[in-house]
Design a protein around this nucleic acid. Sequence first.
DNA 1: AATATTAATCGTAATATTGCAATGAAACAA
DNA 2: TTGTTTCATTGCAATATTACGATTAATATT
Lengths: 117, 117
Amino acid sequence: MKQLILKMGLAKTEIFTEDQNQIALFAKVFGHPARVAILQHLFKIDTCVCGDLVTEIKLAQPTISQHLKELKLLGLIKGNVEGTRVCYCIDSENWTTMKEVMFQFLNQDTTKKDMCC
Amino acid sequence: MKQLILKMGLAKTEIFTEDQNQIALFAKVFGHPARVAILQHLFKIDTCVCGDLVTEIKLAQPTISQHLKELKLLGLIKGNVEGTRVCYCIDSENWTTMKEVMFQFLNQDTTKKDMCC
DNA sequence: AATATTAATCGTAATATTGCAATGAAACAA
DNA sequence: TTGTTTCATTGCAATATTACGATTAATATT
């Protein structure tokens, strides 16, 4: 069966903390340039994107659709049906939550961490 | 042949900007809880880690070794041979560089981004 | 109603990731 | 030297990801 949701591969998630799994899940969704490009475009246009993502990013429509689905499942974007079109935009609230989790991980103090190597 | 370096899958990297590919590469290495755990441990102990990662994280030694290799190839950690042991630590300089790239991506303004959805 | 537009889903091929047992290599200890 | 410790590498099985053609579903247009 086709894989529709980004999983942790064969990763033994049960041996890691919830925090570690959460960070990895967020990071994984950013781990593909197409999804980075989609998000950057949503930020750039400063409004909903309605259908022009396929022309914006040079990938086939089913491919874009699949990437959008992953982003939506993680809650980072919202989709709204408008006629035959679907409009997508950043979910600000969830984006902020994600940002806080990632910042805490990335923003650790690096002073004197590499003195012995 | 076995894949030793995290690649972008079948991703058509050539259609994306250097920035987008860079972000995706960094994100991808954080996209596994074992690597998140390794990095968190390196930050926590505030010094080099010499061999106890396998006892700290409940994965087989070759598995840890492979994750360390990925982190080292991206430059986020440094390894130092000391006798039969190898000591690992965060590469502060590269960590800071990575952090700036990721912050710029994550820290985009979310105000009024979801008014139409 | 018939056709067009838009986007989701299905099915599948190509490739990547994860994990580990087995093995190898290098330094140390007896 | 022989054995031990520590870590890297190889080879492989199980599973996930990416991409897209074909199809479906839903709405809009004529």
